[in-house]
Design a protein around this nucleic acid. Sequence first.
DNA 1: GCGCCGAGCTGACTCGTGTCACCATCGGTG
DNA 2: CACCGATGGTGACACGAGTCAGCTCGGCGC
Lengths: 344, 344
Amino acid sequence: MSSESSESPDPAQQGPAHQVTSADVARAAKVSRTTVSLVLNDTPSARISERTRERVRAAAEQLGYVPHAAARSLRAGQSDLVLLPFAVAAIGGLAAEWVDRFESAVGELGYTVVLHGDRVPEPLAAARAWARLRPAAVVASDDPRLTADAARVLHRAGVRAVIASAPAPVEGVYTLIVDHAELGEAAVRHLLERGCRTIGVVMPTERGLATFAEPRLAGARRAAAAYGAEIVQLPMRCSEEAAAALAVLCRELGLDAVFGCNDEYAALLCAALGDLGVAVPGQIAVAGADDLLLGRVVRPRLTTVRFHPPAPGVLAETLHALVTTGAAEPLPPVRFEVVVRESS
Amino acid sequence: MSSESSESPDPAQQGPAHQVTSADVARAAKVSRTTVSLVLNDTPSARISERTRERVRAAAEQLGYVPHAAARSLRAGQSDLVLLPFAVAAIGGLAAEWVDRFESAVGELGYTVVLHGDRVPEPLAAARAWARLRPAAVVASDDPRLTADAARVLHRAGVRAVIASAPAPVEGVYTLIVDHAELGEAAVRHLLERGCRTIGVVMPTERGLATFAEPRLAGARRAAAAYGAEIVQLPMRCSEEAAAALAVLCRELGLDAVFGCNDEYAALLCAALGDLGVAVPGQIAVAGADDLLLGRVVRPRLTTVRFHPPAPGVLAETLHALVTTGAAEPLPPVRFEVVVRESS
DNA sequence: GCGCCGAGCTGACTCGTGTCACCATCGGTG
DNA sequence: CACCGATGGTGACACGAGTCAGCTCGGCGC
């Protein structure tokens, strides 16, 4: 494979062909580098004749000049990066679409969104890794590593906005309250209202999911307490085999309902119960959470809890306000809604 | 631990508190900036006494110094960024896990992986956007924007390795051959071997998926031609309603099999057929692709085509070789495997 | 002739880092 | 005393871009 037509057969072989800088454009247009900068950035105060502007733009185009973001933000003292420290696999289908729309929204405000998932468990080490990039903002979601200390490291590195969703406010972080306990409570209250009194709660054993699972369980307990009902913890891996084993256990324990913690686990368990001949919801009712496509594909369709995050555009403006003015109106807590379908 | 504690109550409120640079560390340790750099980078040729090293490290720790990645790579003339220009929503569940493992693998080689999904449709504009970040490598997957011209823009900006998966080699790009036509062919050949002769192929109407759908359809045609069978295109959105409508159409058309293009579409259609009382696979056999969890959760379980990408570590080493030496061994084409389950 | 003005452009400094060449000190030797 | 070789450090430049103060030049008024 060769990429450069006639000049040179293979640029990958001959080392970087000399990166094009604004100095090259200046030489080509026979002006100073200053002029190039003024023209290409449309600096309002600059008094450059239209003829010169044309020359500069033509030269830039012809040379294929692309500004160097790092150099620019170094000089500017502030970058246009917005860092989302997520591992891709940790983003569900629903959230993925939200992320994409958020990306468009902040993109229109001139930011460059960047996802960077690392496996660093220690909060300060993770924060340092993020800080190296000197982003203008960091937007995390229920990431337990985003502690007050981590936020301090980020602010020290010049990060202007640190945003996170979390069950409770974190010092130095603009916190969007997402109370998973409330979600668990809503799901289990629904099952209680259906008359169920012995309710299993699936606890995913995959690392990282504990952040959601623990508070959801706590909420489930809260709901059960009000009805004098019983809660049973059900550890489970995200696999068919684990689901099959757990289904047997559910029957043995005589549960009359299970909160799956998440649509994936709920659907897996639901299918396993069906294979066992257990009627859903007749003998055991099942509810999931997060309203994934999955829940509408299985039969019976899965009852789930859908949550309503702020519109991406709204959060984008909040971010922009934080970056520019250092403050922003707090957003209302994220609300949940039980979507009753056929599994309960 | 607290790095600043008493000085300032709320770092977010009082503006950037003066970013900590290596010069600050130098002052605190009473050495030159050069020494700081030598110590913190463990430069092998440096002759610095252990006492001084300690002082420098202590000062850096105490001040919470984090190096400025942009400045560093500016000076180095090359960054450690690996850019994956994917929209998050475009990554399926299976691929997401692969991406995460790839991230770990290249991370161990000292790179920083960054996902950046934009919606720029024009290849050169997109390439310029990527080039601004001056990554060491760009790894794309079946992205139609990664043309030979786009690759040229990237190389011009000093990008050392441009890697992509695609059905056919692209000039200037290290291409990992993933022949979706072959995938479609395998799936449909399986259905043909089951005796089916009138086969529908779902064509997702969502933008971006055409990249996969078109070649898969072409492969389906190839397989059908060998058997003298008929192929019917079935456009479909990714929703329950669209699936229900399409299920009716399938029955009317008298199809005896459908290739769902993808497990999501296949599962959706499968469920809709079931709701209609059509027996799967009795009356209509269904096959999907990509081997998502979804396919093992629905009943009947979905027959699917699984593909075997190179191990993340292998591709990471290929990338490293390209970045450092400019060349790498070609990898064998990605192979596919039909996983027969209950829907066919 | 001199002073002033504005249009049009540029020189020189800055951001935070890495690195090369050079410098200072010291103990030892001819 | 002059010289040497380590040892332990530092000064100054470069990377690519943005920006402020200042330069030149032609035209105009008196």
